[in-house]
Simulated assay, not measured.
Amino acid sequence: MKGYLFLAVAIVSEIFATSMLKASKSFTQLYPSIATIIGFGIAFYSLSLSLSLQQLKLGVAYAIWSGVGTAITAIVGVVVWKETASWLTVTGIVLIIAGVVVLNLKGAAH
C-alpha cells in the first residue's frame, strides 16, 4: 500500500512540475523554474521509493505514473492554461487511461 502512496505523490509532483515548466517560460522565470526542478526531484524520488518497496512492478508503476500524469496534465493544460481540446484530445486521454487499466489488470493477474 505504501508503494501506491509514494506513486501518488510522484504523480502529483510530476503534474505540478510540468505545469511549472510551462510557467517558467523556458527557464526565464526564477520561481517557476525552481518549482519545476523541485517538483521533478520529488516526483522521481517518490517514484523510486514506490519501486524500492518492491510492492509495485516497474512496468505497472511506470505505466500508472506516466499515463495518469499525462492524462491529468492534458486536462490541466485545457483548464488552467486554456489550451484547446478536441475529440482527439479526449480520445487520447481515454486511451491512455484504458492502457493503464489493462496493464494493472495484467499485473494483478500475475
Rank of each mutant, 00 (worst) to 15 (best):
V12R: 01
T18S: 15
V102N: 04
K22P: 07
G77R: 03
G69K: 09
I11H: 08
V90P: 00
N104C: 14
A108N: 13
L95I: 13
E14S: 15
G39S: 04
Q55M: 11
W87E: 11
T18L: 03
K57M: 06
M1D: 02
L53G: 14
M1G: 14
A43C: 12
V80P: 01
W87G: 05
Y31Q: 11
I64P: 04
N104K: 12
Q29F: 01
K57H: 14
V60I: 14
I96L: 15
G41M: 06
S48V: 09
L47E: 04
K82V: 06
L47D: 03
V79D: 10
I15C: 08
I72S: 05
A71V: 02
A85K: 01
T89E: 09
T91M: 13
A108P: 00
K2A: 14
V94K: 00
S24A: 12
Q55R: 03
M1K: 09
T91Q: 09
G67S: 04
G99E: 08
F44M: 12
Q55C: 02
G92R: 05
V12P: 03
G3A: 14
L103F: 08
T18N: 09
Y62N: 07
A35Q: 05
L5K: 06
V76D: 09
G107V: 00
L53Y: 13
Y31T: 12
L88F: 13
I97Y: 05
S48Q: 12
G67P: 01
A61T: 01
V79P: 11
V78C: 02
Y4Q: 07
L30A: 13
I97A: 11
Y45W: 14
S86Q: 06
S33E: 09
L51R: 06
W87T: 13
T91W: 08
F16N: 04
M1F: 10
Y4G: 04
T18P: 07
A108Y: 07
S33L: 02
S86E: 08
S26I: 01
K2D: 11
V79Y: 10
A85Q: 11
H110C: 00
A74M: 15
W65C: 02
L7I: 03
V79G: 10
V76W: 04
A43P: 05
G67N: 07
I64T: 11
I96Q: 11
K82Y: 08
L56E: 11
G77P: 05
Y4D: 02
I34W: 02
F40M: 06
S48W: 11
F44N: 06
I11R: 07
V100D: 09
F44Y: 13
V68G: 03
A23R: 13
F40N: 07
F44W: 04
I38G: 01
L105C: 09
L95T: 08
V79R: 10
